[in-house]
Design a protein around this nucleic acid. Sequence first.
DNA 1: CGGAGGCATGACATCGGTGTCATTTCTATG
DNA 2: CATAGAAATGACACCGATGTCATGCCTCCG
Lengths: 362, 362
Amino acid sequence: MSTIYDVAKEAGVSPKTVSRVLNADAPVKEKTRVAVEAAMARLAYVPSNAARTMRSRKSGLVGLITGAISTSPGSGEFAGLPAIHIIQAAQRVLSEQGMTVLISDVGERHGQMARLVQTLLEHRVEGLMYVVEFHERIKLPENLDSQSVVLVNCFDDAGTPAVLPDDEGGEYNLVRGLVERGHSRIAFLTPPEQQVARALRLKGYQRALSEAGLAYDPAMVMTAALTGLAHEFDLLWDVLDRVLGNPDPPTVICCGNDKMAMRVYGLLSDRGLKIPEDISVVGYDDYRIISEQLHPPLTSASLPYEAMGARAAHMLLSMIRKEIQPKETRVDLVSGPVTWRKSVRTYDQTVVNIQSTRRNYK
Amino acid sequence: MSTIYDVAKEAGVSPKTVSRVLNADAPVKEKTRVAVEAAMARLAYVPSNAARTMRSRKSGLVGLITGAISTSPGSGEFAGLPAIHIIQAAQRVLSEQGMTVLISDVGERHGQMARLVQTLLEHRVEGLMYVVEFHERIKLPENLDSQSVVLVNCFDDAGTPAVLPDDEGGEYNLVRGLVERGHSRIAFLTPPEQQVARALRLKGYQRALSEAGLAYDPAMVMTAALTGLAHEFDLLWDVLDRVLGNPDPPTVICCGNDKMAMRVYGLLSDRGLKIPEDISVVGYDDYRIISEQLHPPLTSASLPYEAMGARAAHMLLSMIRKEIQPKETRVDLVSGPVTWRKSVRTYDQTVVNIQSTRRNYK
DNA sequence: CGGAGGCATGACATCGGTGTCATTTCTATG
DNA sequence: CATAGAAATGACACCGATGTCATGCCTCCG
């Protein structure tokens, strides 16, 4: 493989001039530049990042740690769907800025974490992103204390800069939209209790109800999913039974997430209930693989993963370029829209309500 | 950041001895080793991969190019689910062998491909994997002609080593299993025509029928998906209409893939047909996100993505270590099992057939 | 006790770029 | 036309490891 010296000789200039042509960091005469570029082409020259990194102390690398790619294939969980979008967006932004992303997967082996970080440090990454699957609290290993780090979809107690989804606002928008469509009896099947999203979404649900002047009925709110429960279907069956058996049953079921909504579709179909004629269903997350393929397509609040990834990438770049102080803790909440699809029925008789409601919030 | 010289001074030895401790590539006295390790710990020394790469000409990097991570978020396609598993498995194997994976995403921008490869070459990757979403034929850019490359889930005309799913065998196993369960009237809704998998799976379907002594009825085989068709649902509706309206209707519908099966669930439910009581349904791919969450859970043939990723990683390692000649073209077919779930009904009256059939193939 | 031979360590050059500073070549201006 | 000052280029050291080869230190055995 040819070097900058070979190119210099071939073009009849000094190595330093070749370097200047490569980096365009100092004026080079047009004629010289052309000669050097021709020489590079002839020799199929490819610069060595290693050598460059060594002298300039800039690797052009950003490390990205995630569990996404290998999220427990055996667990039946969504295999890395969400985080993938975060990663994709982050990578696009970073590569546009000339950074290469070194993606490392911790998978289930969180014990490997330190070793993984070690590898990234050996590659002299200029910054680090930590991306997780579900909105949660985490703790970073100590060996990256002095690095530029941005957390995505998670946060820690040390106040590391983070980018998070606005779960509360998303559920609020979803429920408000339901109210605008004439629903006033709204069931809410919460996400698993351990999840951070649960409390936030519940809060958004309550806020939307209260702003619409609707009473909060605890009988309409149930936990229908437990992490790690083997017979989730049974629980969901029972919960649906109770909700639908209510003397004043809901016109719509808000599912804590799309996966739950998918199961609800099946169970409602078993009971002979049609969506949305007999009852409406909405999800959360807007995993298009589910929401668009279900029949009828599912209304769902988007988790703005692309936006989060892009935001995090920009944040990290600012930190690398010292535009932001490392100590200046920032937590960005990112909102996503609700995508209204056919799983929700609009009740005309309450259109009046919609108008008035809308006026309030517009 | 401290260097090997700092460590050497701290430990009172020469830099070369520190290097030997790091790499364990030459005998070092126990006492010396301990002293050096202590010095490294005190200084929080992290070796520089750049320097190491430069001198030893080994980067320890493997490039992985994929479209998976950013597969068209707007297309409603499965966003990178399959390839993710391939990548995960490959990464696990490679990192166990001390390699770091540089994942690059071409996304939709195939024009970026050359630039992307360029970046990988600058990092002096020792080998390359090219992973795609769907089993297909591809063409590699020319600038990686002389590299060690393994294709995964795809192949080219140049005879580059490749690892592919055994679509024919998978469909064969699936249909054979159906026959064993008493089905003899088996509809097959093919994957989109452009897909390589279509012809292979159809072939497997036909082989299973013919080995079971069942006639091949063209009326039972229909194309129910077209790539890029906006109103796929309409097509599927019509196809189902025809298949179910057949004077001798099938007892089971083999869907070209799980996504199609998911849609078929919805359409069958619309018609008031129960799965599997009224009709059985099977898919292909075994995307657990679909197959396990559907109600009832879907029987499906696995695409052995983990195995393919691992196989490809091992193949690439052999090439890097020169255990395999680069010219020695290898194409590995990897088979996956069928996961039998509740979407298939077993007909007892033909158990006799099962026995005899099984005897034939065991 | 002396020397062969293995074990442990060190000296020094080198990998391929870039930073620093010196030097040469223009260009504009009096 | 001389010359200041900018533009363009070059000389040389250096980033932080490892490869090569030399050498010092033991140990074992005759």
